[in-house]
């Protein structure tokens, strides 16, 4: 075994040179590249973090905007609901007023119709009553009725004013209308009653009018003395017609019930 110090020195120098060379060409560049990659990764991570923070901020902004939109939407909905409510109330009010108007008009129409119906019914009843009375009166004939009407004729003439009686008495002729043809005796009785009542004897022209039913009427060109069932019924009918004007209006509740 031998030990060569030259070789020892050579190997020490060789290893030192190798250390320097590898430091220069291997360890430093490779570790530098690793460090650069780590730096790049760190910066990328920082950028990613910043980007994420930016994205989160944008997301928060979007969320805030969305919340704003939601609240605005709720406000708009509330306003629309309030407006719709007011419109509905207005429409209801208008509709109610219109319905009230229509109800009033309908009620008035019903009242008018009821009044008309009532008047028609009363008129018909009155007409029926007059018809019944006229038919009943038509059965009342005979001397008693004739005498009664003669008496009423005399009374009617007596109730005239003196001027009217003079005018009747001095007239050229008077029409004396009878319900039936009077015989000679009846004519004489009539003439005597008229003359007695007028205090004069005017010329009487007898006419027959069955529509009188019964009784005697005196007509001149300027005067008429109506004394017959027909005149009585006409007066009665007129009185009834006048009385209809004073009839109370139809009962509203009964009308509504009807």
């Amino acid at each position: 075994m031998s030990f060569d110090y030259w070789t020892l020195g050579f190997q020490a120098v060789n290893v030192l040179v190798l250390i320097w060379l590898l430091h220069r060409f291997f360890w430093k560049p490779v570790s530098g590249m690793i460090a650069q990659r780590q730096t790049n990764a760190a910066s990328l991570l920082l950028e990613a973090e910043a980007t994420r923070a930016k994205a989160e901020a944008a997301l928060a902004k979007v969320a805030a905007t969305r919340d704003g939109l939601a609240s605005e939407r709720e406000a708009m909905l509330a306003a629309a609901q309030a407006e719709a409510k007011a419109t509905r109330a207005t429409l209801l009010e208008e509709t109610r007023a219109e319905v009230d108007t229509l109800n009033d008009a309908a009620k008035a129409a019903r009242l008018r119709a009821a009044k008309t119906l009532k008047e028609t019914a009363v008129e018909d009843a009155q007409g029926l009553a007059v018809t019944i009375a006229s038919q009943l009166a038509a059965r009342l004939t005979g001397e008693a009725v004739e005498a009664a009407f003669l008496g009423w004729l005399e009374q009617g003439i007596a109730d005239l004013s003196a001027d009217e009686r003079d005018a009747l008495g001095k007239g050229s002729s008077l029409d004396l209308v009878c319900a039936t043809d009077p015989d000679e005796a009846a004519q004489e009785r009539i003439k005597s009653v008229v003359a007695k009542a007028l205090g004069a004897e005017p010329e009487l022209r007898f006419r027959t009018d069955p529509s009188l039913i019964a009784g005697f009427e005196v007509h001149s060109p300027h005067f008429s003395l109506r004394n017959s069932w027909s005149a009585d019924l006409a007066r009665l009918s007129q009185a009834l017609a006048d009385s209809r004007k004073d009839l109370p209006p139809p009962d509203e509740t009964q009308t509504d019930a009807a």
Binding site: T7, L18, L21, L22
Partner: peptide, 26 residues
């Protein structure tokens, strides 16, 4: 006066290979 042993020559060869590969790589 300096003897060059085989170990030194092999070391030089090793150095050449290692440094050459390092330069080629980096």
């Amino acid at each position: 006066p300096v003897p060059i042993m085989p170990a030194v020559v092999v070391t030089w060869a090793i150095m050449l290979v290692i440094v050459g590969l390092a330069i080629l790589l980096t």
